[in-house]
Design a protein around this nucleic acid. Structure first.
Length: 875
RNA sequence: GGGAGAUUAGCGCAGUUGGUAGAGUACCUGCCUUACAAGCAGAGGGUCAUAGGUUCGAGUCCUAUAUCUCCCACCA
C-alpha cells in the first residue's frame, strides 16, 4: 500500500539503507553480473573536510548521481567513487581557530598532538559529509570511499613525488614565492586572491648621491625602501637619460644605490622612476635578476621588518609604513601622496595580505606538464562542457609558472625528502633512509614541510583506483568517464589532474568535464562558506525530501548556468513529485478494483497507441539530451511528458476503459496503465530516486534502481496523429463551452454534419465517443443531414462541429467571440501575406515551407469568410 | 587592464543546425469532476536590453553601446 499522501521524510533513509544492504551501488563487475556495455566511471570531487556541504555540493552531486543512475539503468558497468579531501591549509586554519578558543596554539600542542586533533576533525566532519551525501541519495560505492590522507592515497602521493623528483620535474630552490604571514606558509600562485584596496601612491624624494638635487620615486610600498637595490627608469625617457649610471641615496639608511634603465618601466606612470626591491616584489625580482643585483630581504616570516630596517626592525610592515612616512615627512622627503586603488594579494584561506618573500621551497617544473594539459584539449582527448570554459583552462596553462608545492604546515602529506645533517645530502625516498647515501651518516632528518593539498587532489582519478598498485580497479575503470565539477577549481584541480594523469598514467583521466553553475542565495549572492549564506542540504531534505531538492536543482535551469536557490522553487517543484505520487495512487486504486491480465499488445486502442508513441518520443529525446549532458532539458521533457501528456490526457482517456463494465476491457486497460506507469518511474528514477523506488517496489516487489531504463512498446504514427486531433477537438469544445458561459455541469449535444465530415474523422470521433463525453461533458453526439442555420459552429482539425443554439445561447457573447476570432485571423493573415506575396520568399525559402504557408493562408482566408458570414447571420 | 557570461511575460527561467516566442509561478475567470485544491479547465500578459548589419526571414549569426555578474592580471 502506498502512503495516504506524499510524505518523503520518514521513508528516504530506509530506502537508502536497503539499496546499500543489497549492494545496489556496486559495479556489475563486482557482483560477477554480466553488464552488456562498457564501463561508466565517475570519481567524486572530494569535498573538503573543513565543514559541511552546502547546496552547491548538492547540485554537483545530484548531477553525478543523475548520470550514474541513468547509466546504471542503461546497462553500463557503473562505478562512482566517493571521497573527501584533507584540505591541508583550510583545515589547519580551522583547527587553529578551534584551539584558540581553548586557549591553545599549534606550537603549544606540538606536531603529534596537533595531527591527532586533525584526525579527530576528519572523523567528525568527514562523517557528517558522508551522511549528507547519503541523505541526498548519492548512489556511490562506499566500500571504495577514499580520503586524500588515508594509507593508500599517501602511498600514491609518495610514489608520484619520488618519480617526478627522480625525473627532474620536482626540485628545491630559493625563489621569490607568495608567503602568508598569518598562516605562515608558502602559497602557490593559484592560492592568491587579489582584492582591490584603497591605498596611496607615495611620491618619495631620493636625493642624488652627489647632492645635486633629487629624483622622485612613486611607490605603493614605501616600507620596502630598505630592500631597494637600485632605481630604474625607462631607457628612452628623456627626463632621466643623463641620470642613468648616477647614484641616489636611500633615505633614512643613507645607502647609495645606482640608477639603471630597464624597458619594464613605463614612462607615463607615476614619475617614471621605479624603486627596485627584488626580495619583495615579483617584477622587481625579474629586473634585479636581469641587472645582477642580489635581493635584500627586509622582512621576517611573520610580516615584521627585520634588522636591515634600522629603527623599524620588529615593527609590523604596516606600522613601519606609518612611522616611516611620518619620518620622511619631517625630513621633507615626501613630494606628495595620491590616493590609489591597488590589487592587494591575499591568502585564499585566511584572506590576509600575502607577501612576496624569498624562501627555499619545493617546486614542480610546469613547462612540459602544461604542454600535456594543452595537448589534451588540442587533441580532443578532453571535452569541456560548456565549451567556453576551455578558453579559461587554456589561458591558464599558457601562462603557467612553476608550482610551489611545499607548505609550512603540519596537516598534509609530509614531503618524502631527507637531509643528511652532516654532509647536507638530499635524499627523496619512500621510507626514511637508515644512512646517508653519500657520507654514510645516520644523522638524518625529514623535511618538516607538507605538500600543497592540491598535489594529492591532482592524483585523485588514479589514486582512488589503487595507484601505484597494479589493481583490478585501475585496469578496469581508468581512465574515468566524466568529471562533474565547479568552475572555480578548474586551475587548482582539473588542469592539474589532467597534467599529472597524462604524466604518470599516460592518459587523460576523463574524456569529459561538465562544469556546473554556481549556486546563489535568493538575493543572487554566491553561496560560500566565507559569506556565511550557505544552506545545509539536510535542513532542506528534512523539510521537503531529497527528491524535491534534487528536482529543484535540476529543473528549469540551463546546465552549467548559475542557479538561484530558493525554498519557494522547491515548493513549486515538489508539486510534480506529488503529481507522480498521486498518479501512483490512481493506479493502485484501479488495480484494486479489477484483476490483471497480461498485457495484450494486439488490443491497444488509439489512446494506448498514442501514449506509447509519446513515451517513445520522450525516451528518445531524454536519451539525446542526457548524452549531450543537457540534464536540464532532459528533466524538462520528463516533466512535460508526465504531467501534460500522461496525467492530464492519458489518465483521463483511460478512465472510461478502466471503469468499463467489460471485464476484459478493464483488465487490459489496467495492465497497460501499469506498464506505462512503471516505465515512467524508470524514466524519472535518476532525478527523483526515492519516491520512484518506493512506488515501484510497492507494485513489483523488485528494486527499481537496478532495472533497465524505460522502454516503450513502439510508435504508432497514424493513431498518434488521430489522438492529437481529438485533443485539439477537446480543447476546442472546452473553449467554446467556456466562451458561451455554459455551466461545466451542463451536459450538451455535439452535432456533426454527416455530409460534411470525412469518413476517417467520423471513425475517430466514434472511437473517442466515451472519452469525449467524459472530458467535455457531452451527453450525446447527433449525426445530422441538415444543420440548422442558427447552430453554433466551430472548426477543428477533424472538421466542422456544432452545438444546438438553444443549449448554448447568448448572441451578444457570440458576436464578441466571432469578432475576436476574426481579429486574430487577420493578424495572422497579415504576417503570412508579408511572406507569400514576397517573391524573394517564394523563390528562396524551402519549397515545403512555402507550400505549408500557402495552404495555411488559404485556410485562414476561408475561416475568415465563414466567420464573417456567420456574423452577418447572427440575429 | 584582459577575458567570459547574463539581459526573453509581474517574477525567477527554458529556447544548439536562423522559419509565425515557451513551460513554471503570480494575477484573472470558472470548477471541491470518485489519483491529486500541492488539483482541473480556460483567459490575459513579451517591438526577446539598445542601435546598426547579414538574410526572403534574426531571440537565434555579425558589429558597436548600455547595465549586471564572474574569472584572470605585478604597471611601481
Amino acid at each position: 500500500m502506498l502512503d495516504k499522501s506524499y510524505e518523503p521524510q520518514n521513508k528516504e533513509n530506509a530506502i537508502y539503507k536497503k539499496w546499500e544492504e543489497n549492494s545496489c551501488f556496486k559495479p556489475a563487475s563486482d557482483l560477477n553480473k554480466e553488464s552488456n556495455k562498457e564501463n561508466f566511471t565517475i570519481i567524486m570531487p572530494p569535498p573538503n573536510i573543513t565543514g559541511q556541504l552546502h547546496i552547491g555540493h548538492a547540485l554537483n552531486n545530484t548531477t553525478q548521481d543523475f548520470l550514474i543512475r541513468y547509466k546504471r539503468m542503461k546497462g553500463y558497468n557503473t562505478l562512482w567513487i566517493p571521497g573527501t579531501d584533507h584540505a591541508s591549509i583550510a583545515t589547519e586554519v580551522k583547527i587553529i581557530d578551534a584551539l584558540k578558543k581553548e586557549g591553545l596554539s599549534k606550537e603549544k600542542l606540538g606536531r603529534e598532538e596537533f595531527l591527532k586533533r586533525a584526525w579527530q576533525w576528519n572523523e567528525k566532519y568527514g562523517g557528517r559529509i558522508k551522511l549528507q551525501l547519503k541523505s541526498l541519495g548519492c548512489s556511490c560505492d562506499w566500500d571504495r570511499c577514499a580520503f586524500t590522507m588515508d594509507d593508500q592515497r599517501q602511498k600514491s602521493v609518495l610514489h608520484v613525488f619520488k618519480q617526478l623528483y627522480d625525473e627532474g620535474y620536482i626540485y628545491r630552490g630559493e625563489k621569490l614565492i607568495n608567503w602568508c604571514p598569518t598562516c605562515k606558509t608558502a602559497l602557490s600562485d593559484a592560492e592568491v586572491e587579489h582584492v582591490d584596496e584603497n591605498s596611496n601612491l607615495w611620491y618619495i624624494r631620493y636625493p642624488y648621491a652627489d647632492k645635486s638635487g633629487h629624483l622622485v620615486v612613486a611607490t605603493t610600498r614605501p616600507e620596502t625602501i630598505f630592500g631597494d637595490v637600485c632605481v630604474a627608469v625607462n631607457p628612452n625617457d628623456e627626463r632621466y637619460k643623463d641620470k642613468i649610471g648616477k647614484e641616489v641615496t636611500l633615505p633614512i639608511i643613507n645607502k647609495k644605490i645606482p640608477i639603471i634603465s630597464d624597458d619594464y618601466v613605463e614612462k607615463d606612470f607615476g614619475t617614471g622612476v621605479v624603486k627596485i626591491t627584488p626580495a619583495h616584489d615579483f617584477n622587481d625580482y625579474e629586473v634585479g635578476k636581469r641587472h645582477g643585483f642580489e635581493p635584500i630581504k627586509i622582512m621576517n616570516l611573520d610580516g615584521t621588518m627585520n634588522e636591515c630596517c634600522a629603527k623599524y626592525a620588529n615593527l609590523d610592515r604596516y606600522q613601519c609604513r606609518k612611522e616611516l612616512i611620518e619620518d620622511l615627512k619631517s625630513l621633507d622627503l615626501i613630494e606628495k601622496i595620491e590616493p590609489y586603488v591597488l590589487p592587494k594579494a591575499t591568502c585564499y584561506r585566511c584572506h590576509n595580505a600575502v607577501e612576496p618573500m624569498m624562501s627555499k621551497q619545493w617546486f614542480m617544473d610546469m613547462q612540459e606538464m602544461a604542454k600535456l594539459g594543452l595537448d589534451a584539449v588540442d587533441n580532443n582527448e578532453l571535452e569541456i562542457v560548456p565549451n567556453r570554459v576551455q578558453k579559461i583552462y587554456r589561458n591558464w596553462l599558457e601562462n603557467i609558472k612553476d608550482w610551489c608545492i611545499s607548505r609550512q604546515l603540519w596537516w598534509g602529506h609530509r614531503i618524502p625528502a631527507f637531509y643528511c645533517k652532516d654532509c647536507g645530502n638530499t635524499m627523496v625516498e619512500l621510507k626514511k633512509p637508515e644512512t646517508c647515501t653519500k657520507c654514510g651518516s645516520s644523522n638524518i632528518e625529514q623535511d618538516p614541510d607538507v605538500l600543497d593539498t592540491w598535489f594529492s587532489s591532482a592524483l585523485w582519478p588514479f589514486s582512488t583506483l589503487g595507484y601505484p598498485d597494479d589493481t583490478k580497479d585501475l585496469k578496469t575503470f581508468f581512465p574515468t568517464s566524466i568529471l562533474v565539477t565547479a568552475q572555480d577549481i578548474i586551475f587548482f584541480w582539473v588542469a592539474r589532474m589532467v597534467m599529472l594523469s597524462k604524466k604518470i598514467m599516460g592518459k587523460t583521466p576523463f574524456s569529459k568535464v561538465l562544469i556546473n553553475g554556481i549556486v546563489r542565495d535568493d538575493e543572487g549572492k554566491k553561496m560560500s562558506k566565507s559569506s556565511n549564506n550557505g544552506v545545509d542540504p539536510i535542513e532542506i531534505i528534512e523539510k521537503y525530501g531529497a527528491d524535491s531538492l534534487r528536482l529543484s536543482l535540476m529543473f528549469g535551469n540551463g546546465t552549467g548556468n548559475d542557479f538561484r536557490f530558493s525554498e519557494e522553487k522547491i515548493l513549486e517543484d515538489r508539486k510534480f513529485i506529488n503529481k507522480v505520487f498521486n498518479s501512483g495512487k490512481f493506479l493502485e486504486l484501479v488495480l484494486s478494483q479489477t484483476y490483471e491480465t497480461k498485457l495484450d499488445v494486439t488490443k491497444l486502442n488509439i489512446f494506448d497507441k498514442w501514449i506509447y508513441t509519446k513515451l517513445s518520443e520522450a525516451i528518445e529525446e531524454i536519451n539525446k539530451f542526457i548524452d549531450s549532458l543537457d540534464v536540464c532539458q532532459a528533466v524538462n521533457k520528463m516533466y512535460s511528458f508526465v504531467w501534460d501528456e500522461f496525467c492530464n490526457y492519458y489518465l483521463e482517456f483511460l478512465k472510461p476503459y478502466v471503469y468499463s463494465d467489460d471485464q476484459n476491457t478493464r483488465a487490459n486497460a489496467c495492465a497497460i496503465l501499469k506498464d506505462v506507469y512503471l516505465n515512467i518511474l524508470k524514466l524519472l528514477h535518476p532525478i527523483i530516486p526515492f519516491i520512484t523506488e518506493d512506488i515501484y517496489s510497492n507494485f513489483t516487489h523488485q528494486f527499481l534502481i537496478n532495472q533497465n531504463y524505460a522502454t516503450s512498446i513502439g510508435t504508432f504514427e497514424k493513431e498518434s496523429k488521430d489522438v492529437e486531433k481529438i485533443i485539439s477537438l477537446i480543447q476546442k469544445i472546452r473553449e467554446v463551452r467556456l466562451s458561451y458561459n455554459v455551466a461545466p455541469s451542463k451536459r450538451i449535444t455535439l452535432v456533426v454534419d454527416k455530409s460534411n465530415i470525412s469518413k476517417d474523422s467520423l471513425n475517430i470521433v466514434n472511437e473517442s465517443k466515451l472519452v469525449l463525453s467524459k472530458m467535455t461533458n457531452i451527453e450525446k453526439i447527433d449525426l445530422l443531414d441538415n444543420i440548422d442555420d442558427d447552430s453554433i459552429k466551430f472548426v477543428s482539425e477533424l472538421g466542422e462541429f456544432y452545438f444546438y443554439k438553444n443549449e448554448v445561447v447568448d448572441t451578444e457573447k457570440e458576436r464578441e467571440k466571432i469578432n475576436k476570432d476574426i481579429e486574430k485571423i487577420i493578424a495572422e493573415i497579415k504576417i503570412l501575406e508579408s511572406r507569400i506575396l514576397n517573391p524573394n520568399f517564394v523563390s528562396r525559402a524551402p519549397q515545403q515551407l512555402v507550400e505549408k504557408e500557402k495552404s495555411r493562408y488559404e485556410y485562414l482566408l476561408n475561416s475568415k469568410n465563414s466567420l464573417e458570414e456567420k456574423l452577418k447571420n447572427l440575429k
